[in-house]
Simulated scan of single mutants.
Amino acid sequence: MPDRNQAALDFLLTRRSRPSKTLRAPAPDADQLRVLLTAAARSPDHGKLEPWRFIVLQGAALQRMADAVAACGLRLGKDEETRAKARAAFADSPLCVAVIEVHKPSEKIPALEQTYSAGAVCLALLNAALADGWGANWLSGWASHDRGFLTEALALGENERVAGFLHIGTETSTPPDRPRPDLDAITTWLSE
């Protein structure tokens, strides 16, 4: 039998994201966040390309993002309720880390595998924050798929896009658990 890290397994079997609307200050300070980012950067990365980077949004930057997402929603014809909800995700957030997928030219590593790596970074950052006792939520949203928003609000290059916005803070309420997948319905066992 392999050595088991029961605490880590128990955490993974019971982990639960916290809705971003329930997160408030305080959020991790720079030193605490550096630990979480270090954990996230240990994600699988075929070819050691580092096809991702981080943008830490806090204070006035979050208010600027809130205004930018509202303006993007207006430009895209989103209704007022949709714009207000997207705006609040940034305006009310104590800290947000944008995980930016950076496609890098590679003859060996397909773009899709670089996308998977960026997704793994998002999940690793989410789990690191939760394991460290913070509330955290991984969001994307319609604005993260709009090239104008990515260019104007985050100054992203053509080879970059948002893999996720990770909101991190102190949770104000514990949400009820949600139904989980029926493992038997989604698992095929092959032995031959």
Rank of each mutant, 00 (worst) to 15 (best):
S17K: 07
G164A: 13
A86E: 12
V121Y: 03
L125T: 04
A84G: 01
V102K: 09
D184Y: 11
R4D: 00
F90Q: 06
V56M: 03
D146A: 10
R64K: 12
R83W: 01
G169Q: 10
T187Q: 11
L156M: 10
F165I: 07
A86M: 10
L76T: 07
D79H: 13
P110D: 01
A7E: 10
S20E: 08
T174E: 12
T22D: 10
A70K: 06
S117Q: 03
R34I: 07
D3G: 12
E152C: 08
P179V: 00
D45H: 07
P179T: 00
G119L: 01
L130C: 07
D67P: 02
A163C: 05
T14S: 14
N137K: 08
L139Q: 15
F149E: 03
R34G: 12
E152D: 14
R16N: 09
S93Q: 00
L154A: 08
L62Q: 06
D146H: 11
Q114T: 05
F149W: 10
V121L: 02
A163T: 05
A163L: 07
Q58E: 13
A163W: 00
A98M: 08
M65I: 07
A185T: 03
A86K: 10
S93H: 03
G77W: 08
K85G: 02
L156G: 00
L37Y: 03
A120F: 03
L123S: 07
A60G: 11
R15M: 05
W134S: 02
D184L: 14
T14P: 00
